[in-house]
Design a protein around this nucleic acid. Structure first.
Length: 480
RNA sequence: CCGGGUGUGGCGAAGUUUGGUAUCGCGCUUGACUGGGGGUCAAGAGGCCGCAGGUUCAAGUCCUGUCACUCGGACCA
């Protein structure tokens, strides 16, 4: 019954032919995105935005469940404020956009359109944190930020993008580190259990860590083209920003001290990850737990008496059971509708025609594997629930296999270079910890360090690059 | 930012070499027949040829500039 090998959608370039073009085609044809008149600023169309709304809904409830509160800080940052933390401003200044006029009057101080809000949070925290009783502060904000990137691509690199940024302050370093790890765990859980995207959890090297952070943690995913995409990051700042912004509190011991800080975020880039992790040559494949429409009901021979009523009844039943369900009662042919919702990645299609109604059944077809089943209308809710669940697990396992099958242990730089140029994917190799070696890996093998995984393996005692004693096993790869 | 490619109804293209009435397919609108994998027929609508200058009697076509998209690189989370 499976039809996964049959090409149904001709407007989408095959990913084997041109992966970048396939990706762009899917974004456009599935109506996730449109271009605007300014480079790098994209329009999120209803279907694309709906995916983001589901991301927000899921994550927001996880944040709230772990004690975080939502806030909203301003869009603009005075230059003097941005400059307070040296490393931070060095990292972001090259890609800031500036407001220099208010109406027709030049401003006395130019204002940066936020590329991230650490500085704003710090300024605010300096005002509201005075005592150990004021800690911890667990804030999050959903907003957009602006970074003047030189090249842009739908979801993967926007100049303006939507994200959430959590910013927290803690009395001790231990607490802050714990928070950093907790949030990374939430991201990992969300990627795997909601988006069906397996991750490699780990720590960034100093070279790859966030500007101004003491440590950056990441979840790394692998795309269909075997390149890496960072799913989310969580940073530990120590008290560096607190010192720069003069944030102090009086401890239980009546001593003035600096609080310890974290920040963490995910962005609409995750949507690009979903597309490139699960999609195929017929278009998008959405994991059921994030899909805006989980079940599309397609009435067949809908002009015949009773068909539309039966379809509406199925929609209200499934909707009452908590599923996200729609029906397409337009006068397009059923075949057209099949292709359309396949392209849009709807996880489950429900066909309902006169023959089905007569037999008190419907036809259910899974998007991920094309499997078709005839299901009695009696246990419809249970059947649908099981199918969506299996689809989630199948997508996860498939992606997990891709990740594992394309991760290669390597013992020398030369081996990394050969493996990466021949097959792509991730290389795992031992590393001494020197920036020079990391740089050589980039220059000579074309890969950057993705992370130092929490799950360390001992592949040898010496650095794959210089041969000196190794301290870490690192995942290397080409990143988006 | 550097290098290559591309901008012509909503989409995909031809036309540019050699300047001379704006073309084709899909889609769209209306109607009829259809309907279990992108249906058939008929009649219609829709274009400042990316934008701005210039050359010319005449510019989609030639020249200059500019913007955007795209591929590769550099930069970047």
């Amino acid at each position: 019954m499976a039809q996964e090998n049959k090409k149904q959608v001709e407007q989408i370039t095959d990913m084997e032919v041109d992966f970048a073009q396939w990706y762009t085609d899917v974004c456009k044809k599935a109506e996730l995105i449109d271009y605007s008149s300014v480079k790098g600023l994209f329009i999120l169309r209803p279907y694309g935005y709906a995916i983001w709304e589901n991301v927000q809904k899921e994550l927001d409830s996880k944040f709230k469940a772990t004690g975080h509160e939502n806030v909203y800080l301003p869009l603009l940052i005075p230059e003097s404020l941005l400059e307070k933390e040296k490393n931070h401003v060095e990292g972001f200044a090259p890609e800031c956009a500036w407001v220099t006029f208010g109406g027709s009057e030049p401003l006395e101080e130019r204002l940066c359109i936020r590329p991230t809000s650490e500085t704003l949070f710090c300024e605010h925290y300096a005002n509201i944190i005075h005592s150990w009783r004021d800690l911890p502060k667990l804030y999050n904000q959903w907003c957009s930020v602006l970074r003047w990137e030189k090249t842009s691509r739908p979801f993967l690199r926007h100049r303006e993008f939507l994200w959430q940024e959590g910013h927290t302050m803690h009395a001790t370093a231990e607490e802050a580190i714990e928070e950093t790890e907790r949030m990374l765990e939430i991201y990992a859980d969300f990627c795997e259990n909601t988006l069906a995207m397996p991750v490699v959890k780990g720590k960034k090297t100093d070279k790859e860590k966030f500007s101004g952070a003491e440590a950056t943690y990441t979840v790394e995913c692998m795309m269909h083209d075997k390149k890496a995409l960072q799913g989310g990051t969580s940073h530990y700042f120590g008290d560096g920003f607190a010192r720069a912004f003069d944030i102090t509190f009086t401890g239980k011991d009546n001593r003035q001290q600096y609080p310890h800080q974290t920040s963490w975020g995910v962005s609409t880039r995750l949507i690009g990850g979903i597309i490139m992790t699960h999609g195929d040559n017929n278009g998008l494949i959405l994991p059921p737990r994030i899909a805006p429409i989980q079940i599309m009901v397609i009435p067949v021979a809908q002009h015949k008496p009773g068909v539309l009523d039966a379809a509406a009844a199925v929609v209200s039943r499934l909707s009452a059971a908590g599923f996200r369900v729609k029906s397409d009662t337009s006068d397009q042919s059923p075949g057209w509708k099949f292709a359309e919702y396949e392209m849009k990645g709807v996880p489950l299609r429900l066909e309902l025609g006169p023959k089905d109604i007569e037999n008190h059944q419907c036809v259910l077809v899974r998007r991920d594997n094309g499997e078709k089943v005839f299901a009695s209308l009696d246990q419809l809710e249970e059947t649908v629930s099981k199918l969506l669940d299996s689809a989630h697990h199948a997508l996860y396992s498939k992606a997990k296999r891709t990740l594992e099958d394309n991760t290669y242990p390597c013992s020398t730089l030369e081996e990394v270079r050969e493996t990466m140029s021949a097959r792509g994917g991730f290389a795992k190799a031992m590393w001494c910890g020197d920036l020079a070696c990391e740089q050589r890996m980039k220059d000579e093998a074309g890969v950057s360090s993705r992370c130092i995984p929490f799950a360390q393996e001992n592949l040898g005692d010496t650095c794959a690059i210089c041969g000196k004693p190794a301290h870490h096993m690192v995942y290397w790869g080409v990143a988006y």
